[in-house]
Design a protein around this nucleic acid. Structure first.
Length: 213
DNA sequence: ACCCAGGGTCATA
DNA sequence: TATGACCATGGG
């Protein structure tokens, strides 16, 4: 049994299920993944609510809007010009699949991942968030919390890139899609509450290993 | 006033 | 390949 499985269990018992992603539809989750880039979830959520309020949280309707029209609606999420362009680019791609998640589901995960990564401002974390949380593929989402927590635990050196970290989890974590979902959410929760950016880690719940690092 | 938040891209050395 | 600059709002 690899250590990453044990850590998952400990995070789960300490923090409880996080129930991500809070989106009501696959499209909402996908747009949320873009809007949440490097910004607090509350800021992203406001932008989503604003789109919903304007009845634009549907691919066919949002596709008709120019980026300049989308930008002011998502102001609260920050980087609104870039994110508006990213959304427009995604929709242009999604149109090829008839704006249908049913059709997307027929494609293999690797194909989807490559196509998402080719889109404007969809990097590895956003692509993997869409794959896991919107399309329910068994993909581990790596983020800065993952790197910090597992480096402090001594499981990573801190020099690994995104791909190497993801590979480590894919090779060792024995969980179903639901567990991949919870694991990432639990890491975010743990990174915000306990294993914070500050160079100490009070009241650590993971084997008491990262107490003082 | 500063730091941080569910990143990605591009120019430079 | 590895930093640094830039994008930008809102809460602590």
């Amino acid at each position: 049994m690899h250590i990453v499985n044990k850590i998952y269990q400990q995070l789960l018992s300490h923090h409880g299920p996080q129930h991500w992603w809070p989106g009501e539809t696959q499209f909402e989750v996908t747009i949320g993944a873009i809007l949440a880039q490097n910004v607090s979830w509350t800021n992203a959520a406001k932008a989503i609510e604003n789109l919903k309020k304007n009845d634009l949280l549907q691919p066919q309707k949002l596709f008709k809007k120019k980026p300049e029209a989308i930008a002011p609606l998502i102001k609260s999420s920050g980087y609104y010009n870039q994110k508006a362009a990213a959304i427009a680019t995604f929709l242009r791609w999604f149109k090829q699949y008839d704006f249908s998640f049913e059709i997307l589901q027929k494609l293999p995960t690797e194909t989807l991942r490559e196509e998402l990564l080719a889109l404007l401002r969809i990097g590895p974390e956003t692509a993997d968030s869409i794959l896991l949380y919107a399309l329910e593929r068994k993909i581990f989402v790596v983020d800065s919390y993952t790197k910090r927590i597992f480096t402090r635990l001594g499981i990573l050196t801190g020099n690994e890139d995104y791909t190497a970290i993801q590979k480590m989890f894919h090779q060792n974590f024995e969980g179903a899609v639901h567990d991949y979902n919870e694991y990432h959410a639990l890491i975010v929760k743990h990174g915000k509450d306990i294993c914070t950016k500050k160079p100490h880690c009070d009241m650590c719940c993971i084997d008491n290993i990262c107490k003082t690092v």
